[in-house]
């Protein structure tokens, strides 16, 4: 169920100037210091190491990768919860690092956050009404009537009706799907322009996932939201976002539209991910899956050159293990960071 709108392809391969692109991530580096006993420094965890891309309103982008690849850190930096050590998040032309505290609070009201664990995301000692009032109170909506009105409106959008029935309930009284709707409602209540969703359905039952993903898609279309999905599940991604970015060891190694990535995967890691993702098919029993050996590298001392090279069957010695590959464009609108495509 790909998007019917043909949005303009918006992938840039180099740093953009400060245009009025809605959201621009520019050469973002987010490192965490490792403390040693006493006062020594043991190095840094290079969680995000040079990520750049743009996103416009009304576009949905999925960032796919395994655990430890840095996608969660990237997401939290976009949310303003971590500070980059280099590079920046540029929102409507303004650098996040230059925001004052008040501007930062405004920015946070512009970004909605949908978390992975619906139960953990809701304070267990508050009822649904309190949970939804909190963001409003914090952002200065003092009139109780106005708050209730907004809650009603947003609940109708997430299809939790009758609203009065749900307001006094506590999180443990709701099903997983309902809890996630409350989380989405909370993310939407400040009328954000950007929505960040971290594995929004991975902890829900299979039968409920589609409902929730449809809901998110509907909200995106209705409110012309920019959406960033973080996930490790390639099968769902295609249905709900235009673009898919593949992340590995702190870098984005491939960027393409959904259909394009699945039809013409380029990077060996992407190929591995796709072949490891099964569809329900009885023939799977007959063959073994082809999995690259080894594990993702440590982010404290990542490998030289291309970070995937120790596991890559098609590695070019002398090149892949020495220099980090830049982005190549083998197909229009399809970028890949791999030396195999250096002639593109």
């Amino acid at each position: 169920m790909a998007s019917k709108k043909q949005t303009k392809v918006n992938i840039q391969s180099v740093q953009t100037e400060l245009s009025d692109t809605f959201l621009s991530i520019q050469d973002l580096h987010v490192w965490f210091e490792l403390r040693k006993f006493g006062f020594g420094r043991a190095g840094y965890v290079h969680a995000v190491d040079g990520v750049s891309f743009d996103l416009d309103r009304g576009e949905a982008l999925a960032i796919v990768g395994e655990s430890g690849c840095g996608k969660t850190t990237l997401m939290k930096t976009i949310l303003g919860l971590y500070m980059p050590v280099k590079g920046d998040v540029v929102y409507k032309g303004n650098r996040l690092s230059e925001y004052s505290n008040a501007e930062m609070r405004w920015y946070r009201s512009q970004v909605g956050f949908v978390q992975q664990d619906p139960y953990g995301a809701l304070p267990p000692f508050m009822n649904v009404q309190r949970i939804l009032e909190e963001p409003l109170i914090i952002n200065g909506v003092k009139d109780k009537k106005e708050r209730l009105e907004r809650i009603h409106r947003v609940f109708e959008e997430v299809k939790m009706t009758p609203v009065e029935e749900f307001l006094p309930k506590f999180p443990h009284m709701l099903s997983g799907g309902q809890q996630q709707r409350v989380v989405i409602a909370r993310a939407m209540i400040l009328n954000p322009k950007l929505l960040v969703a971290d594995e929004p359905v991975s902890m829900l039952d299979a039968s409920v996932r589609v409902e929730i993903l449809n809901l998110l898609r509907g909200l995106q279309e209705k409110h012309h939201l920019a959406v960033i999905y973080i996930t490790h599940d390639l099968s769902t991604v295609r249905y709900f976002s235009e673009y898919i970015f593949v992340m590995y060891a702190g870098e984005i190694i491939e960027k393409a539209t959904g259909d394009d990535l699945l039809k013409n995967p380029c990077h060996p890691y992407t190929l591995a991910l796709l072949s490891a993702t099964s569809d329900p098919d009885a023939k799977n029993v007959e063959k073994f899956q082809d999995v690259p050996p080894g594990e993702p590298p440590s982010l404290v001392k990542p490998p030289e050159g291309c970070r995937f090279h120790p596991r890559c069957k098609k590695m070019i010695p002398g090149l892949c293990d020495v220099k980090r590959p830049p982005e190549f464009q083998p197909i229009k609108g399809h970028l890949v960071s791999c030396w195999l495509f250096k002639d593109a």
């Binding site: 978390q115 909190e134 963001p135 914090i138």
Partner: peptide, 13 residues
């Protein structure tokens, strides 16, 4: 907890 993270994300002091 995730709900604390969420609170920071919607701007709680």
């Amino acid at each position: 907890s995730t709900y604390i993270e969420a609170a920071r994300a919607y701007g709680a002091k």
